[in-house]
Design a protein around this nucleic acid. Structure first.
Lengths: 127, 127
DNA sequence: CTACTATATCGCTAAACAGTTATACAATCA
DNA sequence: TGATTGTATAACTGTTTAGCGATATAGTAG
């Protein structure tokens, strides 16, 4: 990353920014096992449909998710499952940071275990 | 990451947020090969000392960097070099995203090559 | 003590953005 | 056509924050 100029650094920062909002992380989580329509996500999170839609736009605009209209519904899905490598790497480091708080530690370390298990790869199926 | 509750999700989001600001990425870049004092960073970036100091505070508060006062100067350094794994993983993915723009693509892919090279590990020395 | 240097913090402004409600748009069905 | 359903956008509010200059604080030297 050292050799990047200012424009590239900004792109990288924007990419990180896509993951820096809890609601967007929840959306990415929800898309782990396949596509979801907007209404499903809205109901799942119990927030406004407009909010979900806006975050989906952001994620789509950054190239993290793709959309597919079928009927009156729009289905969103992960473009590249490698983003979960990122998430799990972060979970690992955040988990260690909060190692004092037993409950949190366990949560994060469960994530770390799941990331190492080969069963995870099979879980990336499409709806 | 799936099993995380709202509080943990927020921690993860905050962690990503640390990397979501260009100036902070530049600072982390500058700390790759060892510690730096505030004045060095200020001069390096040509911005206000207050700004650098504030970003350093953010990074330190999130546990990404540590400080060591010696004389009237304060030296900051990376706590855990694994954060560069994150950065390089992101560079790789961002680079592919901008594969159309030849110049940018080259930059990012150089990063990817460097990340795979064993020579990189030796580069993590301390000033 | 004073003077000097280096860093941290304060006060501020402007911009970005997450969230809301209300409305517009698009696709299907009667 | 009109009605209905599902999604996107508009308009707005409040909060956050990156940036700056000015000031306060901490350490050193004389």
């Amino acid at each position: 990353m050292e050799s990047l100029d200012d424009a590239a650094i900004e792109k990288v920062a924007e990419f990180f920014g896509a993951f820096a909002v809890p609601m967007r992380l929840k959306i990415l989580n929800a898309l782990r096992h396949g596509e979801r329509k907007v209404g499903e996500l809205t109901e799942l999170f119990g927030c406004s449909q407009a909010n979900v839609s806006k975050h989906l736009s952001v994620l789509a605009q950054k190239g993290l998710i793709g959309k597919s209209q079928r009927g009156t519904s729009v289905y969103y899905s992960i473009v590249d499952p490698r983003i979960y490598q990122l998430c799990d790497l972060v979970c690992l480091q955040v988990g260690e940071r909060y190692a004092q708080q037993a409950q949190m530690k366990d949560m994060f370390l469960n994530v770390a275990r799941a990331a190492k298990s080969p069963a995870r790869k099979a879980a990336v199926r499409r709806g």
